[in-house]
């Protein structure tokens, strides 16, 4: 849990967001400390994805404060790109660049954002591709890989920027059951390295195994948060109980 002696890398304070007139995030307060692994769950449309997309400003909040690595996210931010490059993101639909090879997908940002020499960037990319166990696919194009392999490339691509925080937006929701495991294994290994992770997922097994904290959201609010053990065994809120009974008993 939130230990006092650890540095907070994300601070969200009374944050609100609207899509048009629809109030999608309501009074969000969240602090994430360095190395913490957080799983966010909740019914669809509850604002989970929007919340983590606000953290790297793919979505813009209208009220309240978000600070990431000590930098306040606001409209007059000059170096948004450098803040974004410290926060890695993995998407539900992988979003690999289909016209670039696996290796080029991984080296693009290190070369152009981090200004790394091409050779060093390629070595770095191969190192991470080995970590996600697909170095042999480096020369292929994303369209030639399976969904699980593509998602692992996407993880490697994000890691190549050496981010301090990793955001996962339903990383296994678009995958076949057989492939979910290979992606989750990669994420578990990543968690073991001490990476700060925010994961939106319905994989409760993953939550039990690696999460330090589970957050339940519904209708734009954080309803309940607790350690996985207490969250799954003694949920306090009725909506949490209903949600858990629906996803665990089928």
């Amino acid at each position: 849990m939130n230990s006092k002696n650890k540095k907070n890398v994300i601070k969200i304070n009374e944050m609100h967001k609207w899509f048009g007139s629809f109030h999608v995030l309501k009074n969000i307060n969240l602090e994430v400390s360095l190395g913490e692994r957080i799983v966010i769950c909740g019914p669809s449309g509850s604002g989970k994805s929007t919340l983590i997309r606000c953290i790297n400003r793919l979505e813009v909040h209208q009220k309240g404060h978000i600070s990431v690595n000590g930098v306040e996210l606001s409209g007059d931010l000059k170096n948004l790109e450098s803040i974004r490059s410290d926060v890695g993101m993995v998407f539900q639909s992988f979003n690999l660049f289909p016209h670039l090879s696996v290796l080029e997908n991984c080296t693009l940002a290190p070369i152009w954002v981090r200004k790394m020499p091409k050779k060093d960037a390629e070595e770095l990319a191969m190192e991470y591709l080995e970590r996600v166990k697909i170095p042999e696919q480096a020369k292929k194009f994303p369209g030639q890989l399976s969904g699980g392999q593509q998602q692992r490339v996407a993880i490697a691509r994000a890691l190549c920027m050496k981010p301090k925080i990793m955001l996962f937006d339903e990383p296994t929701s678009a995958l076949d059951p057989e492939m979910i495991k290979e992606v989750l294994d990669t994420m578990i290994e990543l968690a073991e390295t001490g990476m700060t992770m925010l994961v939106v997922t319905h994989e409760m097994g993953f939550a039990k195994k690696v999460a330090d904290r589970v957050i339940f959201m519904d209708e734009g609010e954080i309803i309940e948060q607790n350690t996985p053990k207490l969250f799954f065994t003694k949920p306090t809120n009725d909506r949490t109980k209903l949600f858990l009974s629906q996803i665990l008993n089928h």
């Binding site: 793919l58 790109e81 974004r84 979003n95 994000a158």
Partner: peptide, 22 residues
């Protein structure tokens, strides 16, 4: 697809880098 721009934003590319490479 919109996801291409989001991915480019997420890895920190600028507008002109995104235009040129993506």
């Amino acid at each position: 697809p919109k996801g291409q721009y989001e991915a480019a934003d997420a890895i920190g590319l600028t507008y002109w880098q995104t235009t040129r490479f993506i």
